[in-house]
Design a protein around this nucleic acid. Sequence first.
DNA 1: TGAAATTAGTTGCATAACTAACTATATGCC
DNA 2: GGCATATAGTTAGTTATGCAACTAATTTCA
Lengths: 146, 146
Amino acid sequence: MPNNQFKRGELYSVINGMASTAVARRLQKNFRQAGLEITIEQWSVLYHLWKEDCLSQQELCNRTFRDKPSITRLIDNLEKQKLVKRIASKTDRRINLVCLTDAAKEMQNLTIDLANQTMSEALIGVNKDEIEIVKQVFQKVYDNLT
Amino acid sequence: MPNNQFKRGELYSVINGMASTAVARRLQKNFRQAGLEITIEQWSVLYHLWKEDCLSQQELCNRTFRDKPSITRLIDNLEKQKLVKRIASKTDRRINLVCLTDAAKEMQNLTIDLANQTMSEALIGVNKDEIEIVKQVFQKVYDNLT
DNA sequence: TGAAATTAGTTGCATAACTAACTATATGCC
DNA sequence: GGCATATAGTTAGTTATGCAACTAATTTCA
């Protein structure tokens, strides 16, 4: 087996097992310590709604890279916690617009501070050029496969 | 909010949502098309056993960056599919050694070919230096958080 | 206009993740 | 030796993911 190929397999295992898991665990832990009862997956949905409120579930699928059933159930759980509500679109009755509650709006600053703090810890010793390359590589990978 | 901080939050969402998900989905699809009934999580366990057979569950936790319950159930499922078997250690009765069956050994070449092929597709347009930087960044992130 | 195709969302099923609490074995130390 | 502590692994409960199959609403187009 050529050496080059094996290295690419290694990269795959690195992508999936290591860094993203470590960041996710740390952020989840920081949420818990701050008394926030949300998961990082729920946070990632709220994150996009803070940028633009009242998106359709399909639009949340696109922006969070999840499939429709995953979003359905994430929204179910967020709705149980009274952080979002589904509002039927007036122009297209198939569409639910997912809108933030006041409680969710109040969480924005704290959670984004915690996320920034987590990323700062994670990225000690990593410079801006390297971050830029990582983002470019991920974008290329995503574009290559979709 | 300083612009620099928000970019780090973006990076987090990129790390978790996009590239790794796309690679995982494509590899899973390629496994299915080749008639392989394993998940990528199961594959990642087999991958480490192909490199070194008969590891303890704890050692598999370390190498795959999973916790103990996750490994317990992954091994449960791999055992159901007769791809590994648990063998009690003779020197320490707390330890299960997880060993490959012949069926699993036969899968090695095909699955690694599929993984290499998937990574080659994913990494079109990405050069070796960039891959090296991604790996270094992930290692730094992991070390920073653990 | 009306049937076919598309789009938005939900539900069921299997696998996997994390936490917390648990059992069993081994090690440390007085 | 024997008790406290640490380590290996399992189980229970909740959340999340992917796929397939489904309903309901909308669009396309003959």
